[in-house]
């Protein structure tokens, strides 16, 4: 008995000494990880000279934000991004719900094969197909339109997979009860399956919005006017080395464009992280 106590004690000793070290390491890494953002914040509120000189006594100024704000149509870009993420999300919710329902509950011939074809899209990334997708979007007359940026992402294999799994885990008794009360297939979907999968919808929506808010390459390819360009593309044009804008103004513009999602993340941190956990891949 006393032997166990001694062993436990020595065991705990061997486990607990690194705890302070752990805290120290965790904090050090956190500081390193957040440093780029902190330095950008520092630069954004100082003159370029003071920012690069790391002059602690230099006064805080807002000129960089003013310069950045007036140099590009940010509000328009922001509006475009918001329309883009809304369009994509709306399309995804409708298409993936219907397809997920089909794959979960309707035994149709060829279902397995078609489902694997759908899953292929997890690997044939829309990003990799930019060249031919560009040709396709142009052929459909969707070049330089919000719908054109969003269309390749709407039938998301990942969303279909996620909702199929969620629908499959709904007990059949719930469906049968709804049928007894006179619901058709549409009613069952709307009254039983969609409410049951609500957490999955929320998770998927957060991941989708975060992904497409930050997406860059495809929107760069398929837009060429201010009226469709999202924030990321606008920011890249603004900050391109050849535009000759100084680092303090670039920092201000970067913070401005990243702010909406960052603030949303800080407020809804728990939900965001839960969402990413639940949704896995994008």
């Amino acid at each position: 008995m006393s032997g166990t106590v001694v062993r436990l004690k020595s065991g705990f000793a061997r486990w607990s000494w690194p705890l302070t070290l752990d805290a120290f390491g965790a904090w050090a890494l956190a500081v390193v990880w957040i440093a780029p953002l902190l330095f950008a914040a520092w630069a954004a509120f100082h003159t370029p000279q003071a920012a690069l000189a790391f002059d602690v006594h230099a006064p805080l100024i807002l000129d960089n934000f003013r310069t950045a704000w007036s140099a590009a149509p940010w509000l328009r870009y922001l509006l475009n991004t918001m329309m883009l993420v809304t369009t994509i999300l709306a399309g995804q919710l409708v298409l993936c719900t219907l397809a997920g329902y089909a794959f979960a509950r309707f035994p149709f011939p060829g279902r397995e094969v078609v489902f694997y074809l759908v899953l292929l899209q997890l690997f044939i990334l829309p990003e990799v197909l930019i060249v031919e997708n560009y040709a396709m979007v142009s052929r459909l007359g969707l070049f330089d339109s919000i719908l054109g940026i969003g269309a390749p992402y709407m039938a998301s294999a990942f969303g279909i997979f996620l909702l199929r799994q969620a629908f499959k885990s709904v007990p059949k008794e719930l469906e049968e009860a709804a049928r007894v009360e006179g619901c058709g297939w549409g009613g069952v979907l709307w009254r039983v399956y969609v409410p049951a999968a609500r957490p999955v919808y929320l998770a998927y929506a957060l991941v989708s919005v975060a992904t497409h808010w930050n997406n860059f390459l495809w929107p760069l390819v398929v837009t060429n006017s201010t009226s469709t360009r999202p924030l990321t593309v606008g920011l890249s044009l603004f900050a391109a080395p050849e535009s000759g804008v100084n680092i303090a103004v670039i920092s201000a513009a970067t913070l401005m464009t990243a702010a909406p999602l960052l603030i949303a993340f800080l407020i809804f941190q728990r939900q965001f992280i839960q969402a990413f956990l639940r949704a896995g891949v994008r």
Binding site: A30, N215, F216, T254, L261
Partner: peptide, 18 residues
């Protein structure tokens, strides 16, 4: 640790320019 995930890659690149 998680914050960089919420930034667009373009914004991240701008931060690292500095």
């Amino acid at each position: 640790y998680f914050t960089p995930t919420m930034l667009p890659m373009i914004a991240a690149a701008n931060l690292w320019l500095f």
